[in-house]
Design a protein around this nucleic acid. Structure first.
Lengths: 204, 204
DNA sequence: GTGGTGACTAAGCGCTTGCTTAGCATGTTG
DNA sequence: CAACATGCTAAGCAAGCGCTTAGTCACCAC
């Protein structure tokens, strides 16, 4: 039931049981929302009694924190890799959109939690995650500004354009389902064409 | 505390008290989420005891249904007005994006409920709302297809492009706050420039 | 006045929630 | 073989949930 992309985020969680609980939490939080999910839901989905959850995680909120932190770190890494992949803004942006979009399609369950359950995070996790989100948006804006300075992009306002680019990718997690006809990779390629054109780049 | 755009959605709710409850529910659902909001929260914010809520609405879910239905109807009307406003796809699309974006910025509280609390809706409200969402997306796709047929737009895939256009607007409700520097109208204009370019239209 | 009505509250019911406690097998160590 | 650690469960606790009940008060018709 759990997709590979999600499972890959926690390759070696402390024990196999802890991992099963985590993946069950991802599934439940994504489908029903954090507050609508009970600890009994998670434990049952992982095939154990409610009390067993607390041997592996101190609280329901700790599960959410772990999911949100890991999801955000993974996204930031992806965005920074795209920036490092080339010196050319057009190529950087193509990579970024392709992978950012595909990530949100492939891992739309984790993506939903990452983007919609921010308000449910405990303070410390929220602080870390907010910082990561800023760094993601800053990276996108930096690429756009560099492209504009070089005359390869042309936008009315870099900040707004950066918002639009990240926004497009993030929202994929909201509507993409496993029954969608486009593969995550195909969607990424199509979105990168649209985005480059949106930014006023010449070539498709 | 409640913005004018939200208040305008219910110009003449049955009684003044019913309206106060509804607006308090909008505020609470948007800030904390439906499941994290208690009927006590709503009643207290409207300045009354928890039991008074049930004189005006049969349940907490009925409040959500009312908010979601009205929000969706208002959005569909806006989209259909944009299509009717001109015979030219470029003009239709400019109007659509300008107003769709501004609506989600102005009414970002209602917008968040409309787009993120679908799973919490009772069955009958969900069915109505799902139908409205399809009509919104269909209208956007129709405009794009007409533009492509006329040689005024050029996109790899109309369905994907329609998703991207609606997605951009919807996601505004997630990140826009009253402290955002751009006005809803200004944001709408900037987004319409980006979208038209994304669709391969000549003029900005 | 009297009876009726509509908007409201204080109190609380039954249930579910996140989490804890006490105890039970199993395996490992000396 | 005793002593302990580990990973789990059955049972349940306090708190909070959506919603109901019983009753109060202001107002209006006659």
């Amino acid at each position: 039931m759990t997709d590979q992309a999600t499972a890959d985020l926690w390759p070696g969680e402390r024990t196999e049981t802890a991992r099963r609980l985590l993946l069950a939490a991802v599934e439940s939080f994504a489908n029903r929302g954090y507050h609508a999910t009970t600890t009994r839901d998670i434990a049952t989905a992982a095939g154990m009694s409610p009390a067993a959850l607390y041997i592996h995680y101190p609280s329901k909120a700790a599960l959410l924190s772990e999911i949100s932190r890991t999801g955000h770190r993974s996204t930031l890494a992806l965005v920074e890799d795209a920036e490092a992949s080339s010196g050319e803004p057009v190529e950087q942006m193509r990579h970024l959109v392709e992978e950012f979009t595909a990530w949100h399609a492939r891992g739309h369950t984790v993506g939903r939690i990452v983007n919609n359950e921010l308000h449910a995070l405990p303070e410390d996790a929220f602080a870390e995650v907010a910082e990561l989100r800023i760094r993601i948006e800053d990276t996108v804006r930096r690429i756009i500004e560099k492209g504009v300075a070089r005359g390869e992009f042309e936008v009315p306002d870099a900040r707004t354009a950066a918002r639009a680019v990240t926004s497009l990718g993030i929202d994929v997690a909201r509507w993409y389902t496993d029954r969608s006809t486009e593969s995550p990779e195909e969607l990424g390629r199509r979105y990168s064409v649209l985005v480059l054109r949106m930014l006023g780049a010449e070539a498709g």
